[in-house]
Amino acid sequence: MSQGNVEIYDLMACNVYMDFENTGLPKEQHKFLIAFHPTNGAPVHELIDSITARGPDGYVVEVANQPFTITNLNGHIFDRTTNAHWYMVNLATGFMTPGEYTIEVKCKDGSVKSISRLQNNEPSDRLMAAYHKHRDTLKASYSPGQGEKLPAGTSLEKVAIDCASFKELTGEDAWYVFRICEAANSKEFDPQNLYWWDNIFLERFTNPDAGKNRNHLVIGNALKQNTAFTYFTELTDGNTMGGTNICIFQPYQTFYT
């Protein structure tokens, strides 16, 4: 296999409201997500020495060169929708200080790649205020979910997920990112093995409104029979990685086929 090239695609450095239950972690967090182009050679984690995030007031965080899990919350994930890896670190140290954040990637060939973005907390404050008012309504609205079993005879092709409209409830625009796993609960949810997800950050190139104010989604892969599925939906303030200031991770939902 050829060595390959390391090229950064985009950077998501933003606030995260992790509305998951029984994690032992504070809900107000932040994260860095660095997406890479396909290397056309060895996987990117074999070509990188280190990844460092820097921000205001001497802020420094190291992104680990290891597989990401729901336990370590720091490492790389292979994305089958792009045939490339992205790195993510979730930090349970509250929301970000507004300002410029830069990622520096040191490669094994001696080259250094970097990318920066500006964090604006005004969209976070606005969406969080709206979410808190309607959180319980939103959680209860997801269907199928709530541990229910699909009725006998339900087609497992193009299963739809419906929920209350954030826009109608709050008047605020929000973009939706959906991820589903073959899992009976949140602890079994494996970000390295998604059953399907809707990559609105790519879809926006053909549909500028990808994910916007969506309360109806059709799962792109046919589901398996007699199987538990767990999913969650993020609410964001945009469908570009570099333009996202807040991700609200809504509670996990489980249903059975």
Rank of each mutant, 00 (worst) to 15 (best):
L73D: 05
L202M: 13
D209E: 14
T230G: 01
C107G: 04
H37N: 14
L25E: 11
E46G: 10
M12H: 05
V16Q: 07
A152R: 10
D190M: 06
N226D: 15
C14D: 09
N221P: 00
N193G: 08
C247N: 12
R54A: 15
Y59N: 04
Y252R: 00
N40K: 14
P26Y: 04
N213K: 01
L169D: 01
G41W: 06
F166L: 04
I34K: 03
S50L: 09
S124E: 02
A129E: 10
P251Q: 06
Y176D: 03
P98Y: 10
T81E: 10
A130D: 02
G55T: 08
Q146V: 02
N226H: 12
Y9Q: 13
V63R: 04
M12R: 12
R204E: 03
N121A: 10
Q119A: 12
G211K: 04
I103L: 14
L91K: 10
T244K: 02
A222C: 07
F189T: 02
I219A: 08
G55Y: 05
F36V: 09
M1K: 13
T39E: 05
A164P: 01
P208C: 07
A92G: 06
N22M: 08
I51S: 07
E104I: 15
F36I: 09
T154S: 14
I115W: 02
L127G: 04
P208H: 12
V89Q: 13
S50Q: 11
A35K: 14
Y9T: 00
K212Q: 09
T230D: 01
P144V: 10
L127T: 04
L169R: 02
G41F: 08
G94R: 05
L156K: 07
C247Y: 03
F32I: 13
E203K: 15
L25F: 12
L194M: 11
I246D: 00
M241D: 03
E188A: 14
T81F: 03
K31Q: 15
Y131H: 03
H216Y: 08
L33K: 12
A64E: 15
L11D: 03
T82K: 09
Q250I: 07
D162G: 14
K108S: 11
S143T: 14
L25I: 04
S143E: 09
T254D: 02
A164L: 08
G153H: 05
F20C: 05
T170M: 03
N193S: 14
S143H: 13
G211Y: 02
N65A: 07
T97G: 00
R204K: 15
I200E: 00
T254G: 02
S111E: 14
E104N: 10
D173F: 01
H132I: 12
E172Q: 13
N15S: 09
D49W: 06
A152E: 14
R214A: 14
D57V: 11
D237I: 06
F201Y: 14
A174W: 02
S165C: 03
V44D: 04
K113H: 11
K149F: 12
M96I: 10
Y142C: 04
N121E: 12
A184Q: 11
S116I: 07
